[in-house]
């Protein structure tokens, strides 16, 4: 399946959860938050929320700012 991650199209294995996606991206789950199709996915739902074909995923962190 294809999904957009932070604005870029990615080819992904089928049946990934958000937790699975982060593992696929080799990203630790700490220090980030995730939105799917403009809705926040709560951390507790990472291993229950599935990524589907065409989804738009945003993965964010805190950065320097004023």
């Amino acid at each position: 399946m294809k999904a957009s991650i932070n604005g870029e199209e990615h080819q992904l294995p089928d049946g990934l959860t958000v937790a699975g996606l982060l593992e696929h991206l080799q990203r630790p789950t700490r220090g980030i938050a995730v939105a799917k199709n403009d809705r926040v996915v709560q951390r507790a739902q990472f291993d229950r929320e599935f990524v589907a074909d065409g989804d738009r995923i945003e993965i964010i962190q805190a950065v320097a700012g004023g």
Partner: peptide, 28 residues
Amino acid sequence: TVAIRRIGLDDKSGKTMLDYLDREKYTI
């Protein structure tokens, strides 16, 4: 204050600004 931005997908360190702020001392 901190800003919120997309992570870089190539950055595998997992380090973020939060690693440099003592949350015992500062409200974010």
